[in-house]
Write a protein that binds this DNA or RNA. Structure first.
Length: 267
DNA sequence: ATGCCAGCATGTTGCTGA
């Protein structure tokens, strides 16, 4: 048995925040780091900085200006799939295999402002994305599948009442609407994924991973949402050892608006 | 209803985020 620590973090430009990422890696020392919103083409990804810290195995899917995901590993890793969703080449997913575990790193569309697919193409895209991923996992990775999987990322949905600062006030706000939560749940259930962080924290307890830039006193106001998730297949649930949301990373100079989420399991 | 803040490219304005 050996420990396997995986981290997920929407970094909101990896070039701008590489020093912060280095600080985090020295502190948390995950085996695998999954980044979202790297915001740059593969050619400008800071490959050498990660190599210097031992993360020599890298799966990068970047594009100019927007989106982009990267999975970095200290252990040998193979890239499984470069698939696109909703017929868009928008770099929202990379699948890899490391230490015998299939790792899916996702950046789900944010969905714009208006929670109505008829009025808002971005919300329609988000709902379609959730339908497509659910369908793919149900077909290609049904719950009976024997192999171990971890799915992480900025899923841009806060599913539970206490994943947001005010359930009532956010029911009509994109990220917490009933239709999104329903589709999030259907996707999770498609492979019988389990919420690895709520494994440690009761549903009745407030838990956030994102705090808006638009609130000056973000920590004092604490109007957060839990948008970043780590799901594991049932066989990994007994292996879960600990979790941490690195809220301190939200408080550094020039911080991302997301904090890293980390889970350790014994595999 | 809007702006509040932030990053990047189309670049001192517009698109994106959620």
């Amino acid at each position: 048995m050996t420990d396997f620590t995986i981290a997920t973090w929407n970094i909101n430009s990896v070039r701008l925040r590489i020093a912060t990422v280095e600080q985090f890696l020295r502190d948390a020392q995950p085996d695998v780091l999954c980044l979202q919103e790297i915001k740059g083409e593969n050619g400008v990804f800071p490959t050498a900085a990660f190599e210097a810290l031992g993360y020599v195995h890298q799966a990068v899917r970047g594009m100019k200006s927007y989106n982009g995901v990267a999975t970095l590993s200290r252990h040998p890793m193979t890239v499984l799939d470069d698939r696109n969703w909703c017929s868009k080449v928008d770099c929202r997913h990379v699948a890899t295999s490391v230490m015998g575990i299939e790792v899916h790193n996702f950046y789900v569309p944010a969905g714009g402002d208006i929670p109505d697919p008829a009025l808002n193409d971005k919300f329609a895209h988000k709902l379609s994305f959730l339908d497509e991923t659910r369908e793919w996992f149900a077909t290609e990775r049904p719950p009976s599948a024997a192999h171990r999987m971890v799915l992480v990322g900025d899923l841009n949905i806060a599913p539970l009442e206490h994943d947001v600062w005010s359930h009532k006030k956010l029911l009509d706000v994109v990220s917490h609407t009933p239709i999104e939560v329903e589709k999030y749940e259907a996707w999770r259930a498609a492979s019988d994924f389990r919420d690895a962080v709520r494994h440690f924290v009761p549903d009745s307890e407030k838990l956030y991973t994102w705090w808006s830039y638009r609130a000056k006193e973000w920590e004092l106001a604490d109007k957060g949402r839990r948008l970043d998730h780590i799901w594991v297949t049932p066989d990994l649930v007994p292996a879960l050892k600990s979790y941490k949301i690195h809220k301190a990373m939200r408080g550094v100079e020039k911080a991302s608006d997301h904090a890293p989420v980390v889970v350790t399991m014994s595999v």
